[in-house]
Design a protein around this nucleic acid. Structure first.
Lengths: 344, 344
DNA sequence: TTGAAAGCGCTAACAG
DNA sequence: CTGTTAGCGCTTTCAA
């Protein structure tokens, strides 16, 4: 037992290579403004290898005011849409050697708020966030300090309460998508269509519900609030909601769930109640998570291109960070498509 | 446009509160060895609030050599077992105000190795890793530098190639679990049982395969390597493997897949081939991921308690970090249970 | 009970 | 082409 060995520093490398510490920093960062003799460079590299030197990010970022880290704030990594989204971000971040820090909020406004401070503490160079309850004023400190923020947005018809802020956004058009999904149900002959909405007051819920209502209204179908239930975006919520919908008289002939997790809960409820899908009732989900293809029956749903959304949102943010884009605010919207399978 | 505002520092807080910067640090860290006047303390706190001061972790950790971050290295967050596992870790880390940094290796040995350097660069206080290909020597620099490492292990009969190293581990007993699952199949009357194994040379694959072989051997059933296929732990791999198994003559009457993702691929293959489950062939999975309950037919599988494993592994590591445990190496094993459903 | 000061490992400006 | 030097914001020892 000889106590922990100190991690080698640039000073150690310099000593072994017989140069000054600054030179080590130069070759490490491949600084263009100074010209190092190829031979010196080799000596330094050899010393780095020999000692197993690895730069200390804390010191580096303290000095340079950059961390090469982007923070991502999402509701819950356990919701299968998000791992894909995160991997999309990591795909593009990693090739530019950025790290990705993920924080879950569980949709809790208090935690959402703390997450912002976590970003400031950790000096993340930029933030990607899917704002649920977050007050826009919470973003102000970050923006004032020059930390770019990109929203993952769910677009509704009044998307720009955020318009005043210098925040890029990449959006999935929840209203249009839900409209498409519900229109699909209507085209299949359904006229009494229930909805299992998500957590109250979240943009995702409101927008998808709006799309649902608009689709019905456009076809002159009655809007009946008794057909709308909450489901909290989780499976159990969907199960409970579906049980309620099945009690209704007359019963809806189709149900649109605002995400696949809830649709799967609904599916379970039908199985429990002995209701057959799609024969007795049609069911449509939203998200196209991997499991949706594999359930019984395979779920008709809507794909929001999670991984691609991750790619775009990362590119938008990184282009700000590396200065390759300095123009006006961008609002991108990623497409979607209905995935017809068996359940509806 | 007035350029980014500088983030307030302790010096700023000190100035506003009319104290020295050291005092700010004292109240911030609630240092016991110095006694601050309650009134002074209040002034400092007020200044902190007023300025929106947030500590700079880079500076803090540069000085204190602690980051309050633990790194977690896993193969792929997109495999549904891992989000649960990660949340388990975060559950216990967050109450002790540790951050969690997740790195995916995609099971690539090179990336696995880079991940170790990432841990060193970021000065994570500790590492949780599920070693796939990683050479044990890769862990040495970390250990020498005093960074505790905890393995998430898959236990086989020779678990302790790792025995020499001072590394705690929390294990799922892959061999016992697979043995239990396959025994279950045998008890249901199957004698010709195929296996869809995972990625070659990984402990998870080898151990589960060992459990499979032992279960067969114990009942005096023949071991036929033609019944064993690879599947790479992903759905598509399971699909391909199952298609091959279905070609066999005689065909197996049951198939054990080393994880649920592959089992679901196998299920797809059966659907494509018009083979009914469980009537024509029985199918068992492994992991009990959320989707396994929802597929058609619901998948008989094995639960390895991912979230609980996350809790334990985090507790084991954190107890080292905060010094509350200083004893000898621990090897914990978390239980499992067969989840009988319809597919087998 | 508070303050002064050193220094963690690094980047970047400047000097030679 | 290479070396010297000044901090980045913080914790922690020591002195007052």
């Amino acid at each position: 037992m000889s106590g922990p060995r100190r991690r080698p520093t640039q000073v150690d490398v310099a000593r072994v290579a017989g140069v000054s510490q600054a030179v080590v920093s130069y070759v490490l960062n491949d600084v263009k403004t100074v010209a190092i003799l190829p031979e010196t460079r080799e000596r330094v590299k050899a010393a780095i290898l020999e000692l197993g030197y690895v730069p200390n990010t804390a010191a580096r970022s303290l000095r340079s005011r950059r961390t090469f880290t982007i923070a991502v704030v999402i509701p819950d990594i356990t919701n299968p849409w998000y791992p894909e989204f995160i991997r999309g971000i990591q795909d593009v971040a990693s090739v530019r050697s950025y790290d990705v820090l993920v924080a879950n909020t569980d949709g809790d406004p208090r935690i959402e708020r703390t997450a912002i401070d976590a970003v400031r503490r950790n000096n993340a160079d930029g933030l990607i966030i899917t704002p649920f309850y977050l007050d826009l004023s919470d973003m102000i400190p970050l923006l004032e300090e020059g930390t770019p923020v990109t929203f993952l947005h769910d677009v509704g018809p009044v998307p720009d309460e955020h318009a005043a802020l210098p925040i890029d956004s990449v959006s999935v058009n929840g209203e249009e998508a839900a409209h498409a999904m519900v229109s699909y149900l209507i085209e299949r002959g359904h006229t009494r269509i229930g909805a299992i909405a998500g957590r109250a007051l979240t943009p995702a819920r409101e927008n998808r519900l709006r799309g649902y209502r608009r689709a019905l209204a456009e076809r002159g179908l009655p809007l009946d609030d008794a057909l709308i239930r909450d489901g909290d975006f989780i499976e159990e919520g969907g199960r409970l909601a579906m049980h309620e919908l099945l009690q209704l008289d007359p019963r809806p002939t189709a149900v649109f769930a605002s995400n696949d997790l809830m649709a799967m809960g609904a599916l379970l409820a039908c199985r429990e109640a002995g209701v057959r899908i799609p024969d007795d009732i049609a069911l449509a989900g939203f998200d196209n998570i991997p499991a949706s293809r594999l359930v019984d029956p395979p779920l008709t749903t809507l794909d929001q291109h999670a991984r691609e959304v991750g790619h775009r949102v990362a590119e938008v943010l990184l282009s700000r960070l590396d200065g390759s884009y300095t123009g006006r605010i961008r609002r991108e919207t990623i497409g979607f498509h209905v995935v017809p399978r068996v359940s509806a």
